[in-house]
Simulated scan of single mutants.
Amino acid sequence: MDLRIFTEPQQGADYDTLLRVAKATEELGFDAFFRSDHYLVMGDGDGLPGPTDAWITLAGLARETSRIRLGTLMTAGTFRLPGPLAIQVAQVDAMSGGRVEFGLGSGWYEAEHTAYGIPFPGEKFARLEEQLEIVTGLWGTPEGETFGFEGEHYRLADSPALPKPAQSKVPVLVGGLGPKRTPRLAARFADEFNVPFASLADSERQFGRVRDALAEQGRKAEDMVFSNALVACVGRDEAELARRARAIGREVSELRENGLAGTPAEVVDRIGRFGDIGASRIYLQILDLHDLDHLELIADQVQSALG
């Protein structure tokens, strides 16, 4: 089971804080550092010192880390045009020596669009499909050839489709709980399918839909990485667990039900149950980015037990 660190910087984290977490992620042996793509704090809190841009952050981390994979859960499709986005991601991939993974979603949080003057279209899913086709099409166009696209929302003509990523194939992530269109989109474009913050039963049901969609596309289920994103809150004992839950404004009982919470042994057992339904990768949502001892505990007593 791969364990990855997943952060939510819009809740309040500057670049230096993210750099410390990314370096700890690398030093402690985790597989990857991922971040959300949001411009506005959610829920309680003031979000100080303010938002950081996902791909600018990852560009900096690409130059200051050497091993961990880097990516987004998920880049908001409403924030960027697909052509410039393909350039940005390819450049960060080159800056990292080929360590980028590309998660793309439709965008959903209308308030952050209003706050920063970003258009919020009514139909986002059709745009997402075109965005995925354009970005992967640009990367897949052989050097010396051009790329064109005629869609309802985007049109490209005679694009040189440059630059290319350092990797011959940047892994593409698609995720969500939509019962029909989301699995079909994943089967068409994705190398990894992620279910965010869902129960075992809902995750198993959605993984099954994606497997069915893969079969319809003539792809094998083994071609897809199945993953979950879950909030992590681990304590050596109940007192430490309660302290960490209070620090992120959550209740221990709720975290135990909906996330990965408890003693290291409890969390190892729960991760194993996600493995039983087909997940081979877990994104640990870390909400207190100043508690690096939390990461050390997870590395020492959870990750090591998973092998």
Rank of each mutant, 00 (worst) to 15 (best):
residue 100 V to N: 02
residue 96 S to M: 09
residue 112 E to M: 06
residue 105 G to F: 12
residue 109 Y to T: 10
residue 94 A to L: 09
residue 120 F to D: 07
residue 115 A to W: 14
residue 98 G to D: 00
residue 121 P to Q: 03
residue 131 Q to Y: 04
residue 101 E to M: 10
residue 102 F to L: 04
residue 122 G to I: 08
residue 129 E to F: 01
residue 96 S to E: 05
residue 119 P to C: 03
residue 94 A to H: 03
residue 120 F to C: 03
residue 123 E to P: 02
residue 113 H to P: 11
residue 99 R to P: 03
residue 96 S to I: 07
residue 124 K to E: 00
residue 99 R to D: 01
residue 93 D to V: 02
residue 111 A to F: 09
residue 92 V to N: 00
residue 132 L to V: 13
residue 129 E to C: 06
residue 120 F to N: 13
residue 110 E to P: 00
residue 112 E to S: 14
residue 102 F to T: 10
residue 97 G to P: 08
residue 114 T to Q: 15
residue 93 D to P: 00
residue 117 G to C: 13
residue 106 S to P: 09
residue 101 E to C: 11
residue 106 S to M: 02
residue 96 S to V: 04
residue 110 E to I: 07
residue 109 Y to G: 12
residue 131 Q to V: 10
residue 119 P to A: 10
residue 114 T to H: 14
residue 92 V to P: 04
residue 108 W to N: 08
residue 132 L to W: 01
residue 105 G to R: 02
residue 101 E to W: 02
residue 103 G to D: 12
residue 122 G to Q: 12
residue 92 V to Y: 14
residue 108 W to D: 13
residue 103 G to N: 08
residue 97 G to L: 01
residue 113 H to C: 14
residue 92 V to A: 10
residue 110 E to M: 04
residue 101 E to A: 08
residue 127 R to L: 08
residue 124 K to W: 07
residue 96 S to A: 13
residue 114 T to I: 06
residue 122 G to F: 06
residue 125 F to H: 11
residue 104 L to S: 04
residue 128 L to T: 05
residue 130 E to A: 08
residue 104 L to A: 11
residue 107 G to D: 07
residue 99 R to E: 11
residue 122 G to A: 12
residue 111 A to P: 03
residue 132 L to M: 12
residue 98 G to P: 00
residue 103 G to W: 08
residue 110 E to L: 05
residue 98 G to S: 01
residue 119 P to R: 05
residue 123 E to H: 03
residue 121 P to E: 00
residue 110 E to Y: 05
residue 109 Y to A: 10
residue 103 G to K: 08
residue 109 Y to E: 07
residue 106 S to G: 15
residue 108 W to T: 13
residue 127 R to N: 09
residue 106 S to E: 09
residue 110 E to W: 09
residue 102 F to S: 15
residue 100 V to I: 14
residue 98 G to M: 01
residue 121 P to T: 07
residue 115 A to P: 06
residue 113 H to G: 08
residue 97 G to H: 11
residue 99 R to A: 05
residue 121 P to K: 05
residue 93 D to M: 00
residue 112 E to R: 01
residue 99 R to C: 04
residue 102 F to E: 01
residue 115 A to L: 15
residue 118 I to M: 10
residue 113 H to K: 03
residue 120 F to H: 02
residue 126 A to C: 03
residue 104 L to V: 05
residue 119 P to H: 08
residue 126 A to V: 12
residue 132 L to D: 04
residue 110 E to S: 06
residue 92 V to H: 01
residue 130 E to R: 00
residue 119 P to N: 12
residue 117 G to I: 14
residue 118 I to W: 13
residue 107 G to A: 07
residue 111 A to Q: 15
residue 97 G to N: 06
residue 116 Y to T: 12
residue 131 Q to R: 14
residue 108 W to A: 12
residue 100 V to H: 06
residue 129 E to R: 15
residue 97 G to M: 06
residue 97 G to I: 05
residue 98 G to E: 07
residue 120 F to I: 11
residue 108 W to C: 10
residue 128 L to V: 02
residue 92 V to W: 12
residue 109 Y to P: 05
residue 96 S to D: 02
residue 119 P to I: 04
residue 115 A to F: 11
residue 132 L to G: 01
residue 122 G to V: 13
residue 115 A to G: 14
residue 104 L to R: 00
residue 113 H to E: 14
residue 107 G to K: 01
residue 126 A to T: 09
residue 116 Y to M: 11
residue 93 D to L: 06
residue 117 G to Q: 09
residue 132 L to Q: 06
residue 112 E to G: 02
residue 114 T to V: 03
